[in-house]
Amino acid sequence: MFKSTINTIEKNEYKYFFFKVFIFLVMIFLIDFAVGKVLSTFYFKQKSGTPYRTSFSINETKADLIVVGSSRANHHYHPDVFEKELALSFYNIGRDGQPIFYQYAVLVSILIRYQPKIIVLDFIEEEFVFDESDYERLSSLLPYYKSHPEISSIVELKSSFEKIKFISNIYPYNSLLFTIAIGNTNLNAGRRNNNDIKGYVPLKNKWNEPIKTYNNNQKLKIDPNKIKVFELFIQDCLKEKVKLYVVCSPYYRNFISTPSSIKLGKSISQKYNIDFYDFSQKSIFKNNSSLFSDPSHLNDDGARIFSDSIARIIGKN
């Protein structure tokens, strides 16, 4: 008797609980949907800044010559020089701190829309080195996940539960609230990364410190995913008949020996008959600190000289 009363009470508690959970989930779903929609609208309304440039690269650019890479690509390839030398339209899709995963994702979304004539992929000295934060940086592609299924396999490298997280409409805009708010006002007008010329962001300061020697003899863990994605990048360009140049732009530091990523990058490029140009230790740059903004980035003056060298190489081919 007592047991059956307890069971009845427990059954009623279950029913009440699951009913409340259902109501609560509906409420969460509706609010998540509404907030997600608002964030999406304002995210894609931005007309300047880094997120805007990513949106433009993925959705709009039709340039003949595309430069792909990290911050070094973004600050090293000057559109005026390329357009003057080659008479081709130009867009720089380089983004600060972004590794090959981001670059490949943008490439596939571009190749779905059109075939650029030339792609320059800027290669960094630690291109293939494993870095966990590189996977976290894929969050910059989250707003494009649902509308661009071609990039889903890349975004899912971030974690094995990424698909579940996308049940939420707010999640793609995680930590972007402030960026979206600023991007939709004039408050970001003076910010450095906001003033680009066809994607290129010039750096104005000059580096005054003496050159340092960088010990790149240490054994660094290589990320097989990065090598795989680099190969996919080359294969996709070959398949779409896009002329690809892989370039390692100048550094203001001495390498004890050729970094392992550069060695690997060269051999993979060679395998596919792709030109790899290594400017990392070119003395014309290394002997002139005034061409740099910091040891890893050329300033605007350096970018013009370097862009001229690359444009000439492309012109000759």
Partner: peptide, 11 residues
């Protein structure tokens, strides 16, 4: 919950 999705650090 909305704040967690908006500004929580997921990684």
């Amino acid at each position: 919950i909305v704040t967690i999705f908006l500004i929580g650090v997921f990684d």
